[in-house]
Amino acid sequence: MSEDKLLEQFEKRIEAGEIIEPKDWMPDRYRKQLIRMMSQHAHSEVVGMLPEGNWITRAPSLRRKMVLLAKVQDEAGHGLYIYSATETLGIDRAELIQQLLDGTAKYSSIFNYPTLSWADMGVIGWFVDGAAIVNQTMLAKCSYGPYARAMVRICKEENFHKKQGYEITATLANGTPEQHEMIQDAVNRWWWQSLMMFGPSDKDSPNSAELMRWKVKLKSNDELRQRFVDLTVPQAKAVNLTLPDPDLKLNEETGHYEYGKINWDEFWNVVKGNGPMNKERIRARIDAHENGRWVREAAIAYSEKNQKNN
């Protein structure tokens, strides 16, 4: 069958809502786009362990210590599920990691910001995981089987992440005046960056149209961002916190919250590598990988010796 015919059949399958599995025929661009998207997602989970990991040893109660540990552990697990799903497309995890460490692959730029206070733990769970949930809920219905299935698993675990973040937020907001100030400051530092997580408006996003046609992306960046804003504004009101946007107001007609202008220059600058923590995040991942090399090698050497003996 000709490439054109195959492509036609493939797109008919997508249109009919069929799920594409690893060994099905797929256009090379579909495979490439998925590898890019999925590996970026996996890298984000793994790098995403670092901002919160920064506060594990300073968690202020035994319960918070355990919950934060469990959350960061989940993020490692999520990275793993998605690397695992990406490998079904015919690429090694080793190669994906190499791309992250040498800077050719990207990860969500939100993780290039520093966590400066315990309150950041609240806001990250509430905003960053909250944004991730909006995105992942959509991806759970995407056309590529292994990715969709990984998303379903992740969505189940992610709900606890947002809840614990909001719980920390509420505790601080209703706590001492110093605690309230701490959480309000964190909100001020993370709000706009969280809105940027959804990416620029699709007209400025080169990949969106194709991804939508192939049902890898089912909603536009702006739609998802709007959903996140609409969910979050009442949540902020409920705990007496203000979002740092003087232009934020409810449009009575549409039922949606209008918000102010996002500073996309900052976004692109961070994507380029000039954010506050880009270098440190990659350095941490390089160190873990390099310092752990002797450990991984030892395990392989042992297993080879034992195979010889069997």
Binding site: G53, I56, T57, Q73, A76, G292, V295
Partner: peptide, 15 residues
Amino acid sequence: LSEWCGHAPILEEDI
């Protein structure tokens, strides 16, 4: 042990 979180030799060992 918690100090290893995010820095282990491989993702499986982080977990």
